[in-house]
Design a protein around this nucleic acid. Structure first.
Lengths: 146, 146
DNA sequence: CATATATTGACATTATATTGTCATAATGTC
DNA sequence: GACATTATGACAATATAATGTCAATATATG
């Protein structure tokens, strides 16, 4: 294969890129709409989702979610101001405190989750598990090759 | 179905959302790396790609690509400063001038295209046309339901 | 034709993200 | 233990993006 031309699959990949840009934008818009009644945004919600299971330091949130460390820092401080998360001591690291949901934050997240469930059930309706699994696997694998 | 729980497909969709955020971020990073030697960015490149076939007004670029009108305006003016695009008169609309590639812009885009082809061939290698088509169809269809 | 509505680009303001630098702390190496 | 390397969070400066407003233009409706 001389690469002065797209292979068939490369052309499809290129289409996927453009579609991903659009899809990402729409997801953020939809997420902002879902979270607005709670005074949140997609970005803030994502931080909360990252620590719902267990509190972790900001840098780890960034790594897990593919976000910048500084962006996470900023969002985290916004959430602190809103009283939705707090820092808790980290025995393993003196500076890298763990970001944890407060009770208020946990309540908000649970409520938001209900809205998200209704919404995602509606959006996912009509799609088969197989095709969704394929899509997930493909974008995950493509992402890992970047 | 009572929607206090995710359906199986909704849970997959939710995973797709998070993966899309990461994927999108990596695509932009990769695009920035590809375009950096040309003094460009993913965002600027995208604008150029939108007008490579035919010159169109800024608002139409925004619609086609799922971008904000004002963001496109900003990027377009950056490209004008770089001499890569220019406005051309639009017989159909006195204010909405068409954004067109200059010769210099066309050259740059062609060169960039070569790099992109080599790169996308490498990334797409190992994926089947079928699975890529499914992924593309799914994210496109999901996006339309938002 | 007249008028209402929608689109478009400019502009200003605010919000958000990125980048670079730094001090502190942790980890790995010798 | 001593040292270099890496990770982390704070901070500042800059760049980029989002929002709201406006005038000009185009389009739809009557």
């Amino acid at each position: 294969m001389i690469d002065t031309n797209h292979t068939h699959t490369a052309a499809l990949f290129t289409e996927i890129i453009l579609e991903t840009f659009k899809f990402n934008g729409r997801l953020i818009t939809a997420g902002d709409a879902l979270t607005k009644p709670f005074g949140l945004t997609s970005a803030l919600w994502q931080i909360m989702g990252a620590i719902k299971e267990a509190p972790i330091p900001m840098a780890q949130i960034a790594r897990n979610m593919g976000l910048s460390r500084q962006g996470v820092r900023r969002s985290t401080h916004v959430l602190i101001d809103k009283g939705l998360v707090r820092f808790e001591e980290n025995p393993d690291h003196k500076r890298a405190k763990r970001v944890a949901l407060t009770d208020k934050g946990r309540d908000a997240f649970r409520q938001l989750e209900k809205t998200q469930i209704t919404w995602s059930n509606a959006v996912a309706k009509g799609f088969s598990g197989e095709e969704l699994k394929t899509a997930l696997r493909v974008i995950r694998a493509l992402g890992e090759k970047l």
